[in-house]
């Protein structure tokens, strides 16, 4: 039996409301909130980045897994906001948790799919028997250009998953990946902010790949939407995961527990992993979960998971995702947000 033996998420404390961003750009807040189904998003503190978020999420995962970190054989962080262009984020994480030096380590980047990519590989290595435990994190301090539609959603957060073969809390029953070369969203070297292709990011990109991957894995596993208790699809905003879920034949009830984007925003590489963490927070033994990520460029990884009895032993050993989202919120104004996100030009 191979699967998840520990999971944990981290949500920064600061928030900015859609209205506060819209006010600055003279945009119509009610239509954004309705159209994108977004209320507010998380903002990282100035001293937080993909590495610090990955560390905190991993500490929560370790509380649930209760293993010796020295036995972790691979450490992967998926992100599109690695603090260094060259120098891994994962080495810092491995050093902090005490997994060095007998460990394989790599940073993944595939727009918003980098987190699930790490999960895919870590799971594969455990299943192949190459490592005892595998760690994969999806985390981002997402960038969105000032005034761009992305600015309303680009948020910060992450989730970490430990894979192993003992005390498994959710088995991985099937995997599937679906990808094509699709230039819907990108960030060139030395650019601060990503660019996107507007409405091209919808049907030919997000919807094509998410449905392609979800249908592919269900066909491979011989399953239909009715076989699942819950589904998590990548959440670039509030609306897309609802719409794609409906297109695939899932109900609102199946989508709801992992649907965080209205109050979290889009945590890019952290998005579907955080949705999965939030779903595990409430899942019962025997529940079946479908997770479908999406990364621009474009690709989509899918996992079929079955929750085991072990979930009840570990669920409350670390803070739940929605509890973190609700606790100690600090709403900031756009000026503070601009300062935190280094959007203000200062003298050199």
């Amino acid at each position: 039996m191979v699967g998840i033996i520990g999971y944990g998420a981290y949500v920064p404390r600061h928030r900015i409301r859609v209205e506060e961003i819209a006010k600055v750009w003279g945009a119509d807040a009610p239509s954004y909130k309705r159209g994108l189904m977004l209320e507010e998003k998380t903002v990282p503190a100035p001293d937080q980045d993909t590495i610090t978020i990955s560390v905190e999420a991993t500490k929560n995962a370790l509380k649930r897994a209760n293993i010796n970190p020295a036995e972790i054989g691979c450490v992967y962080i998926g992100s599109e906001s690695h603090p260094y262009a060259v120098k891994p984020s994962g080495t810092t994480l491995a050093e902090v948790i005490g997994a060095t030096p007998d460990v394989h380590c790599a940073d993944f980047e595939f727009a918003c799919k980098a987190g699930s990519e790490g999960m895919f590989v870590a799971y594969g290595l455990v299943k192949a028997g190459l490592v005892k435990y595998g760690l994969a994190v999806g985390a981002d301090t997402s960038q969105g250009a000032p005034g761009d539609a992305l600015e309303y959603a680009a948020a910060a957060g992450g989730a970490a998953f430990l894979f192993g073969t003992e005390r498994v809390i959710a088995t991985i029953d099937e995997t599937f990946s679906y990808m094509t070369d699709t230039p819907d969203f990108w960030r060139r070297e030395y650019q601060h902010y990503p660019q996107h292709a507007g409405r091209f990011t919808g049907d030919p990109s997000y919807f094509k790949h998410v449905t392609g991957s979800a249908n592919g894995i269900m066909e491979k596993a011989g399953m239909t939407p009715q076989d699942f208790n819950y589904v998590i699809c990548h959440q670039p905003n509030g609306k897309f995961p609802q719409r794609v879920g409906k297109m695939l034949g899932f109900t609102r009830e199946q989508i709801e527990p992992g649907w965080l984007s209205p109050i979290l925003g889009n945590t890019y590489s952290g998005s579907s992993p955080m949705g999965l963490a939030s779903t595990l927070d409430i899942a019962k033994p025997g529940d079946r979960i479908l997770m479908v990520s999406y990364g621009s460029g474009s690709g989509s990884d899918s996992f079929v998971l079955t929750v085991t009895d072990q979930i009840d032993q570990v669920r409350d050993l670390a803070p739940h995702v929605r509890a973190q989202l609700a606790a100690n919120k600090n709403y900031i104004d756009y000026g503070t947000y601009a300062k935190f996100r280094h959007k203000i030009l200062k003298a050199e």
Binding site: D47, I51, T52, E56, Y84
Partner: peptide, 23 residues
């Protein structure tokens, strides 16, 4: 205690991480 960035060595140097306290 949480893990945070403490200092950065200018815009292009190394990043120093470490412990900070939160409520």
């Amino acid at each position: 205690i949480e893990f945070r960035r403490i200092q950065a060595e200018g815009k292009s140097g190394v990043l120093f991480y470490g412990y900070k306290a939160v409520p």
